[in-house]
Amino acid sequence: MFADIMKYKELLYFLVHKEVRIRYRNSFFGFFWTLLEPLGLMVIYTIVFSLILNVDDSAKGQNIDHYFLYVLSGLIPWTFFNNSMKKGTKALSGSSSLIKKVYFPREIFPVTMLLSNLVNFIPAFALVIAVALIVGQPIYWDQLALLPAFILLQSVFILGLAFLVSVLNVFYRDVEFITNLLLRGWMYLCPIIYPISFVTESNNAMIQQFEWLYFLNPMAVIISLYHGILYQGQTAPLEYVGYSIGITLLVFIIGWVVFKRLNRRVGEVI
């Protein structure tokens, strides 16, 4: 797979470049939307959950300073995931004109989608660090040093799922709608608007009982890794990190195998 993609690196570069440029074409703020979108969401969530629902106050006991920063630091990796999945479902079905006319390795499309989203994600995450420095939130540098590894883990997870949904969506357009719906619910199953300690240090017997279930969701673990850069005690237990790495590899392999199998009929169905 990688040998194939290296052979087409010129094409990959071109497609990523085009994707990034087209995304914000005809918009006044252009590339700044990468930052404006999560900032806008941050304001909304902070108003709703901190001022109206008071998650903020109960989070104080769990040592969450600057609730808005906590929201932002989870929201940006989530937005990366969310946008990638939405684009991922259309990675093949949206390029039908190319796929129908010429042949080249079709795995280029999900990879292009991932890379172009990564281009947006990295400056957005730099914004989190900048905000943390401005408001004086301590930064755990040893965790920050692991940031590339966190991004890699998330990218592999995204790519595996993107292989799966992109090719399935060619056969059944329903996949697009199912994915959008699942993403809504999925977000609330990740520690974004509430600290992870709500789950790990809860007094509620039922939450304690189902803690392991919560961490079966690799995105919850991945988001918690990003939180760990700014907040101590907000990282998922280590055994779940190990589990998430395993499940990510499994998702990637399944996605790849399904993609390769169904790819054979993509040319006639699309």
């Binding site: 052979k7 094409l11 071109f14 085009k18 004109s97 006319k101 010429v102």
Partner: peptide, 26 residues
């Protein structure tokens, strides 16, 4: 294959030339 094979509608002619050349591995 067919007219305008592999041309991307939203791209300019120049961009399409580069895209297609890249597709064929140049």
């Amino acid at each position: 294959i067919e007219l305008g094979a592999g041309l991307s509608r939203d791209l300019t002619g120049a961009e399409n030339i580069r895209l297609n050349c890249a597709i064929f591995g140049l």
